[in-house]
Nucleic acid binder design. Structure first.
Lengths: 192, 192, 192, 192
DNA sequence: GATGAATGAGGGTTCATTCAT
DNA sequence: GATGAATGAACCCTCATTCAT
């Protein structure tokens, strides 16, 4: 099962985006291929021209989510070289990918792991590790600069947990913006 | 659907514990009533003598998870009056309930929310809010004592997110004990 | 399966009456033994002390319905010797047994025949034939007296059909009384 | 639940006819969807591509039964203008729909009413009332012509009851033909 | 006489998947 | 690329019935 992003295949890409939203809103198990077909304006059987199985759709959604976020983080880090700004990028990119408009894929990546077959896991783990390696690097720099505490491996995990959990309580239609929230969580994290 | 804990009904209670483990390991949707029956040594139909629906089992598991944890936290807090020790209780009780041996129900509470019907949610939310109110109170005291930062409402949410996420990466058979992990996460949280 | 009326067994008789009402209101197939137990204030399993199977309850209900009605008709005919009055008795007894208060068993006899096993049918057919023989005799007398048309075998069947069907449209809480209805249907039947 | 007759959908129509016969012979409750599937040469699950629920099949059968009969009666009445002949049409069309070859749907309409959900009833009642309105009109004309007694509303009900009941005793393989039976019942009904 | 707990077969229904057209 | 129809396995749940207590 290839994890190549199907950027070149626009119809497939569109289906992945549609599925991402449904998986996020209803859960993977509770979303039927009929649901996806209906949302895409086609019969459920037609989906199987684009994907071999329902799980392949899930994996494609997840790969999209983690890859897009990794690309965005890499791009942001390429623009910043001050440790504090680089830390800020971690929070902003991650929260935007989770809570921003038209985002759904990363959340699926986080919360539907159990439905991924053992065959598909290794490929996704590679993608996830690549993303977390960026985090680790930035946090290490920040610790060296005295911005955060030294236990950066645990810090990475607790921070990611904090951010992941925001999808459970953040109110998209409330007054607190995503960027503002990112700054507030960062403030809680910094020493002093 | 009553949320009364069926402490007095031992058979039902046993079934809840069995289901909790299955729901945690395979997910609620992927666990069949036949799975539960088999694990309990009975026919799947027999389950419906004790529960009206599969979802009622889920709700019972969740209610057990959050109620037990609340009781344990309340008991621990009753024994401590120093702010730092009270904060420590938050971490230890929570992580023990999530990662300790023979624990499963709280994790189900956190990760299967989407499968709870809208009719059952309010009752569970009440239980959850009761638990989080204890957290809020202890964190407020700690902030007043200068132990943690002042934005305690957000702090409560990010800390809980950090702890919840441990189930995704903590290795029960590794060298890091649950209590030690709790202390390390607390250390990351405290000012200085 | 004995068709002896269990007059001597009051508890069993009470259960038959309770079942009759449920079978009439919901249908035999849609009525569960749990329903009967609940209505009788006992567990469903306890019913099987009184009856071997659910079908035995149905047969008991039917036997009660047809036997009671036969007894009432025989008693009424014993009091009348004028052909017109005897015909009137046919209509009054039958409609009272179908539509009167606290009546249910005869209606079950008419409309749940399909659920009776082939083993139980002969016994019930005997009871039914005994009842219809009374009808046939009275109609023959009436034809001889010029009260009704001569095709009494067909007349018996169409009249019984007319009366049976009243349960589908008669409104127990309306202004038309059962006795009045019986007279009106009789009027339609008489010659002239 | 649409009551439109699915004339244009031949597969669905075929399933309705198959179900009609099973429902008539075994009763709706005693007929399983597996029975229907087997009779139609398909898996039971496949039925649910054509119908949402088993009850939808029942309603389709009933709608077919009453609509077909209404159409046939309307067509027959359009050909006759003498009161006696119009009355004869009532009996012939109705009995043919109940007892004729390849007929089953109307009988289901009459005897499975209890299994129709309250949501589906109003639509069917409209269809039934349309049919009975034709009866009422013809009987009123006949009464005006002195052919039948004046209490036509009750007459309509008792006549329909008589005819409905024929399914319980008429022997399809006996010597009495359906048309002959219709004439005999009509003869019992006419004045003189 | 009755209960509580369970059985076990079967019920209607769902749903990912297939495939001829 | 897509459809319409079907598959077939599995799902949750029901229910008459049993039986030790």
């Amino acid at each position: 099962m290839s994890l190549t992003l199907p950027e070149d295949n626009t119809r497939r890409m569109e289906l992945v985006r549609i599925a991402a939203r449904l998986f996020r809103d209803q859960g993977y198990e509770r979303t039927t291929v009929r649901d996806i077909g209906t949302a895409a304006g086609m019969q459920s059987g037609s989906l199987f021209y684009h994907f071999r199985t329902k799980e392949e759709i899930l994996v494609a959604v997840m790969a999209l989510g983690i890859t897009r976020t990794t690309e965005q983080l890499a791009a942001a880090l390429a623009r910043e070289n001050k440790p504090l700004e680089r830390v800020r990028a971690l929070f902003h990119v991650h929260l935007n990918s989770l809570l921003g408009e038209n985002q759904a894929a990363l959340e699926v990546m986080l919360y539907e792991w159990r439905s991924v077959s053992s065959e598909s896991r290794p490929g996704l783990i590679v993608l996830r590790d690549r993303y977390e390696a960026l985090w680790q690097q930035v946090l290490d720099e920040a610790a060296a600069a005295g911005l955060v505490k030294a236990n950066t491996r645990l810090l990475r995990r607790t921070l990611l947990g904090s951010l992941h959990w925001t999808v459970q309580w953040y109110n998209r239609s409330g007054t607190l913006g995503v960027a503002e929230l990112a700054d507030q969580i960062m403030a809680l994290t910094l020493k002093d």
